[in-house]
Amino acid sequence: MKYVMLIYETPPNLESRKDPGHDPYVAAWKAYHKALVAAGAYVSGAPLKDMATATTVRLRDGKRRVQDGPFAEAKEQLGGFAILDVPSIDAALEWAARCPTAASGAVELRPIDDDFFANFVDG
């Protein structure tokens, strides 16, 4: 079963990317990623660049609205995501608990709606 893991990081988490060679949070993340891949649970994912680099686009009343910044302003921001393929929600939760961000930020798990997606991907 596929899940998306949305990783909400604190400002200090994001700061740690400036010193990727030494920071323990980055080292923990490298190890976590390795463990996910080795266990066959990792489908794909990526870290995201800083909230300041986000742009949000809306269309209202025929007018485009483009604004600097993410959809929602919050102390914790979406720092990355991963797509997991695991046997059950229990396994997904174990992985979420292992995520280094769980200790300081938050990790959201959401099942992917494969059934609905099948409507799009068709011959």
Binding site: H33, K34, R98
Partner: peptide, 8 residues
Amino acid sequence: DRAIGLAQ
């Protein structure tokens, strides 16, 4: 790395 990545 495996031991670190699997720790909770």
